[in-house]
Simulated scan of single mutants.
Amino acid sequence: MIKPKNDLLLRAIKKEPIERTPVWLMRQAGRYMPEYRELRKTAGDFKSFYKNVELSVKASVLPYKLLGVDATIIFSDILTPLEPMGFNFEFREGEGPVFLEPIKSPEDINKLRPLNVEDVKYVGEIIKGVNEELDRAIPTIGFCGAPFTLAAYMIEGRTSRDFKKAKAFMYDNPRDFKKLLDKLADSLIDYLSFQIESGADTVQIFDSWAGHLSPDDYKEFALPPVKKIIKKLKEIHPEIPIIHFTKGVAGFLDYMITSGADVYSVDWMIDLKVVKEKAFPKSAVQGNLDPIVLYASKDVIREKIINLLGKWEKDSGHVFNLGHGLMPDMEFEKVKYLVETVKKESVR
């Protein structure tokens, strides 16, 4: 595969010399962009949007064209592989994803089918389309949801503040819950491998809801299937770096950094210096800026960026990102200002 012209992200991940800190943003293609809203209007519902290769490619490349980020993450959703695996859901305005038949008993786990990547062929076409549209200007990031996060959705039936149904199921049926996580891990290995074979330069595993767990429960339930995915992917694609993101990592960073990932992506509820001391130089680190900073003035945004860059100092190995995704009502100009400021203030 042809290497991206701007390989700053990949060099930072490898802790190689860099001229400045690379920057990309989670949920960087989103409703805060007028151009994205137009594409969404054309597509109709959200599921139709991410299944439409042409529209998804256009959405994926917007952040590079409009913001100048150093990597593009494909436009898709963490729930994408679950539908062909037997669990249907729909996106409802104001509610997010709602599963039509959530898991209610251990027997329901048997409904889960192994993923056939032919059923998500459009995801591979999106990756190929992005690489072609940008002429390999920057690296392309593929992704999946982590097994615990997907299982939490499948049992809860929707997003939640506490995922009490999912956690109660986990506590009452630990063996069956682990069986579900293991089955998900096997399919996600195939899913990420397919994305890599389609042209992804790196992949990110999103464990958005593992932060609802205690450190002991994280170690017992959420971590092992992620380790399994990473170990197997490294056997199949040893040259492809893997990013592991967990929101709410402060309580179990010591466990998270044993997953075997090349990059640990963290939220803002832990000091970047602490993460660096524990993870670097064995692994690179991504993220740490509170997204809510973008609702403040540009002076505050600049101050927070400089402070965060200062915590990492001049070493390679840090990828600038938010601790979670951009929000729909954020101001485009402030997001653009963030990217420009990181580029300017991080010059070596």
Rank of each mutant, 00 (worst) to 15 (best):
K231H: 15
K231A: 15
K232W: 00
K232P: 00
K232L: 03
K232G: 00
L233G: 06
K234Q: 09
K234W: 04
E235L: 04
E235D: 07
E235R: 03
E235I: 03
I236H: 02
I236Y: 02
I236G: 02
I236L: 15
I236F: 01
H237Q: 10
H237M: 09
P238F: 06
P238Q: 04
P238N: 03
P238A: 03
E239C: 01
I240G: 03
I240K: 14
P241E: 13
P241L: 13
P241S: 12
P241W: 14
P241D: 13
I242N: 08
I242H: 08
I243E: 14
H244W: 11
H244G: 07
F245L: 07
K247D: 07
K247T: 14
G248P: 05
G248D: 06
G248K: 07
G248H: 05
G248V: 05
G248I: 06
V249Q: 01
V249S: 07
A250L: 04
A250Q: 06
A250Y: 05
A250V: 07
G251T: 01
G251I: 01
G251L: 10
G251M: 04
G251N: 09
F252P: 01
F252D: 01
L253Y: 02
L253M: 05
L253S: 02
L253F: 04
D254E: 12
D254N: 09
Y255D: 15
Y255Q: 13
Y255S: 12
Y255I: 10
M256I: 08
M256F: 15
M256A: 15
I257A: 06
I257W: 11
I257Q: 07
I257F: 09
T258I: 12
T258N: 08
T258G: 06
T258H: 09
S259N: 11
G260M: 11
G260I: 14
G260W: 12
A261L: 11
A261E: 13
D262R: 04
D262T: 02
D262G: 03
